[in-house]
Design a protein around this nucleic acid. Structure first.
Lengths: 137, 137
DNA sequence: TCTAAACTTAGACTATGTCTAATGTATGAG
DNA sequence: CTCATACATTAGACATAGTCTAAGTTTAGA
């Protein structure tokens, strides 16, 4: 278990309890875009008594404090993304897996000229099939 | 109630029952991006005995037959979109309302050059606040 | 140590969506 | 026309994701 997590939490104004550190330890270091229940399953391995409510509360707290984003990209699942920088997403329609696309691989023109809308944020959502490339994640 | 709906359903290989026509009558002519339960509420006004399962089955059937798209854009809601042409979406973060953005108001570059991905479809997802413009919806 | 605030827990609750078994309806063959 | 069959519809049970609540536990400070 990494001990640096506690410091990260404190830096964001979050009191670092044991449960919160365990959750942070997984969710801040994965690129798997887990759902809340997946986080729960994972955290229970190292912390069997943790309750569902705690995991949900903690994840929502992390989102409120800017440590995570939540995404609503796939059916029936609210997933979390530890990459809080701007980026796009690719969804593999066969596996449901979500991949981050770096911000500058795509370029969107004319977003700022949208009439009647104050744009706060945007991203491109790409769907399709990931090619099999061994070694790639 | 428009009678042309039955012909539209048949043209897509769907047997036009009374319930299905009533559902089509609402959902194919709205730009409100309703959720399944919203469709149910609406259809019950003119067809009080319709069951939840029928509405869900019918909407899924329409999606399978290409009459509708379903979108997973907002938290906890799978919404339906009768606009099956390519277009982008704007989500008002205050009201949760979804607006269609015509395809050519935005332009995305370099989508086809994505390495390792077969792109089947993409759209831009814009979030922010809609300006109040009386008369516009 | 004692107390108050904050955190965690188990489980009830809500909402959304699916499934099933039984019933209803439409249609074509006889 | 009647029956048989296939398909549609129904009510309600079930599943899943997420929230809420009340009670218990921890923590930090006086």
């Amino acid at each position: 278990m990494r001990t640096g997590e506690a410091a990260v939490l404190e830096a964001h104004g979050i009191k670092p309890s044991a449960q919160r550190v365990a959750i942070a330890d997984y969710v801040l270091h994965t690129d798997e875009h887990p759902s809340a229940d997946e986080v729960w399953e994972r955290v229970k391995r190292v912390f069997p008594m943790v309750s569902r409510a705690t995991v949900y509360n903690t994840l929502n707290l992390f989102v409120a404090k800017g440590l995570l984003r939540h995404l609503v990209l796939t059916e029936g699942r609210l997933v979390f993304d530890s990459n809080v920088d701007k980026h796009h997403h690719f969804i593999d329609e066969e596996t449901g897996k979500i991949y981050d696309l770096p911000w500058d691989t795509l370029e969107v023109s004319r977003v700022e000229q949208l009439k009647g809308f104050d744009v706060r944020d945007y991203q491109v959502l790409v769907r399709g099939k990931k090619r099999r490339t061994r070694g790639a994640r």
